[in-house]
Simulated scan of single mutants.
Amino acid sequence: MPRTLLCLARHGETNWNIERRFQGQFDIALNARGRAQAQALARELDEKHFDRVYSSDLRRALTTAEAVAEGRGLKIRTVPELREKNDGVWQGHTHAEVQVIYEDIYPHYLSRKASFAAPDGETLEQFRERVAAALTAIARENEGRTVLVVAHAGVLDIAWRLATGKRLDEKREYPVLNATPNWIAYEDGKWSLVDWARPEGRPEIAAPWDGSKLPRREAARALIVETGGRALLMQYAGGLSPHFLELGHHHFWATPGGALKEGESFTAALRREVYEETGLVVSGDPGPVVATREFPMELGEDWHQAVERYYLIRTEEFAPAPQGQTEEEKTHTLGWRWWSPEEIAASRELIFPEGLEALLRKVMS
């Protein structure tokens, strides 16, 4: 069998990478640095010939692959089997949260126990079998060719182990860098390592917030869910970043809520924002905090360190009737709609927060 070369690249950075949050198979988009990394990868591979391009079907990988495939006339072949490892109920949680909530089993994850799986997830052994089968199928379909495969850190880790013969619990010598080419080969039914990227000497890809002390922006947001399991999302036109405007987006969907005023608590801000945007009166305990976020956020052309808390509010379906909004606020709020998890997952519109469909399924289970 002729030698097949695979160039493997991990997707660019996401906000969940910054937060050290388990992404797994949640469909999280690239952040500003991640988009710049994807373009840098395309420039680095500009003079390399590829016969085909393959990608995980999750958008963080697919967007990275599109940057390389653009202008080459190559169709991206999406392969769901190249998705990241399914980490079950851990997905959406930070490592720090999982370490506390699952302190009795988290050490199995750290030690890379092959038979261990997070609750409702897959084991490393199952993951290895899935990834090995997918990569081998790609190699056999492309005898003698050179192909690009864009996927995830876990997928590239398995590829490295296939090429080096290392066990699942052995330590990898070098990290899996975002949007960086790594090369392995398949010949006569065997894998071999050609080159694995090292961090030394590689240029740092800057993000717009690098070198700045970002102002802290605390916000309270409401995940308002009706008895059928749909969430209320508002449609907004204000505050879109230049990047999204350039892509042709002129509005986005998000859960009701907003920034705290000076001296205001999260719960007070939640009650005020929900009433102003929907007319719903939240009295007493506003409900549990079901998610927290902390990440760089672009508002217009300015960057802030967003610190957000999401409160779960269960209610009957209702038609929002905003109260006490200024004229400017009214022009920024375009409408509303109740969304099911399936509709959120299938939509290509801008919807915040990231991973909302999974959070919605979690709180309704």
Rank of each mutant, 00 (worst) to 15 (best):
P199L: 08
A207T: 13
R216C: 07
T255D: 02
H95S: 01
P175L: 05
V194R: 02
V281N: 00
A163N: 03
D285A: 00
Q126K: 10
R21H: 12
P208R: 08
A117C: 09
T14F: 08
L5V: 09
L247D: 11
R221V: 14
Q126Y: 05
R167V: 04
H243E: 08
H243P: 04
T278H: 05
F127S: 06
R348I: 05
K190V: 03
N86W: 13
L232E: 01
R21I: 15
R202I: 03
Y275Q: 00
E103Q: 12
R21C: 11
M297N: 13
E329Q: 15
E13N: 14
E173H: 08
F50S: 04
L334E: 08
H249K: 14
I138D: 05
L62N: 11
H93C: 11
D104W: 09
F266H: 02
H49L: 13
H304E: 05
V149G: 14
G34R: 10
T326Q: 14
G189W: 12
V176C: 09
G335R: 07
A96Y: 00
E301Y: 11
V68H: 12
V282E: 00
G287E: 05
L162G: 01
P80M: 10
E187R: 02
Y236S: 13
D104M: 08
R10V: 12
A36S: 15
S115I: 07
R172A: 00
P341F: 02
G201M: 09
E13R: 14
D169Y: 04
L162I: 05
T136Y: 12
R202E: 11
F266Q: 00
Y106M: 10
N178M: 12
A269Y: 01
R59T: 03
L223V: 02
K75N: 13
V282P: 00
S265P: 03
S283L: 07
G238V: 10
D57P: 06
G257A: 02
N17F: 06
N31P: 01
R230Q: 10
R83S: 13
Q37I: 07
V100A: 06
V131Q: 03
T255P: 03
T14E: 06
H243D: 11
S212Y: 09
A38D: 10
K261Q: 11
Q39K: 15
L214C: 08
E84F: 06
I184Q: 11
H152T: 08
P353W: 11
F127I: 04
W253H: 09
L260H: 01
L74M: 09
D46L: 13
R172H: 00
V149A: 15
G189K: 14
Q91G: 06
E173W: 03
A268P: 03
E277T: 02
D120Y: 12
E97D: 02
Q323F: 01
S115L: 07
Y236A: 12
E327A: 15
L260G: 01
E97N: 01
H251C: 12
A118L: 11
A40Q: 15
V150K: 15
F127M: 02
R198M: 12
E44K: 15
I224K: 13
G144F: 03
I101C: 11
L359A: 05
P320C: 01
L334N: 06
G355F: 09
K190L: 03
S241Y: 10
A132N: 07
E342W: 13
R140N: 12
R230P: 01
Y310G: 07
